[in-house]
């Protein structure tokens, strides 16, 4: 078998020559998902641009007020709104290991066993994540967390179902018993999830997802419902102990990392 490098192309070609997608609507689903991503990106860039304009306007207005006289201000008769520029995300040095440690602290409890810790992402890369399998005796349940600080992951731009705005300006997206698949695969695997996504005005984002099984895809569920409710996940998300990665500039990506947000399948 010394000539595998010569025969591998043929083997791969033959092994896949009759393979075709199972779904007849793959193209339609792809276009719909792509359009959703495009709309989200367009909205994000619009909001970012508007924010920059408002921030500039605020600085100019502030400058006018500083330079102007009180009499001039009274003559105008119209208060000049001072827009305080939203501060950029605070420099932070959250690491995947810190995210894992925080997650562990928040989900650990008597009677629960935690296993298979994983981490992914990097502070430099702009996002970090971690996960655990938690078992309370009723079946393993995967819990994942994703943190970023560049504002690109907020699912609540423009509001929408499942979104609420908090007094501090943050927005919370919450979803319960969401099926993993939107096709027949969900009957096969029976995977459901609870999910929350908390987005702060400065761009920090934290998403927590909990499944009713040990994996997101391809493995049958092990319990009727995810271990943690959306409300419990929301409480975890609001914890002040999360360390976020440093903010990265919002710019179009050529590699387009997959979003943490769910999409229709």
């Amino acid at each position: 078998m010394n000539n595998l490098n010569d025969t591998l192309p043929s083997l791969m070609d033959r092994a896949t020559e009759n393979l075709e997608p199972v779904s007849t609507d793959l193209l339609d689903r792809t276009v719909q998902q792509g359009l959703r991503l495009r709309r989200r990106r367009t909205t994000l860039l619009s909001v970012t641009g508007a924010g920059a304009v408002l921030a500039t306007a605020g600085l100019v207005a502030g400058g006018i007020q500083l330079l102007g006289t009180p009499s001039e201000a009274s003559v105008s008769g119209t208060p000049v709104p001072i827009v305080t520029p939203t501060p950029l995300a605070k420099p932070a040095a959250g690491t995947p290991q810190q995210a894992l440690a925080t997650l562990k602290r928040l989900i650990a409890a008597p009677g629960r066993t935690l296993s298979e810790p994983t981490v992914h992402g990097s502070a430099k890369g702009g996002f970090i994540g971690a996960s655990y399998l938690v078992d309370d005796g009723n079946g393993a349940s995967l819990v994942e967390v994703m943190l970023s600080a560049d504002g690109t992951a907020n699912p609540c731009f423009g509001g929408g179902p499942g979104c609420t705005t908090n007094p501090d300006g943050s927005s919370m997206y919450s979803s319960s018993d969401e099926p993993e698949y939107s096709d027949a695969r969900n009957e096969q695997y029976g995977v459901f999830l609870n999910r929350v996504e908390l987005s702060y005005p400065d761009g920090r984002y934290i998403g927590l997802v909990n499944y009713n099984g040990p994996a997101e895809k391809g493995i049958k569920h092990t319990r009727a419902k995810p271990l943690f409710t959306a409300a419990q996940l929301a409480t975890m998300a609001r914890s002040k102990t999360w360390k976020f990665p440093a903010a990265t500039a919002v710019k179009p990506s050529t590699t387009d990392k997959p979003s943490a947000n769910r999409k229709g399948r």
Partner: peptide, 17 residues
């Protein structure tokens, strides 16, 4: 199924840009 998901994710991200 994973192959379909991968194709979908890849092409959807391409449509975005």
């Amino acid at each position: 199924h994973h192959a379909e998901d991968l194709v979908q994710d890849t092409l959807a991200n391409m449509l975005k840009t």
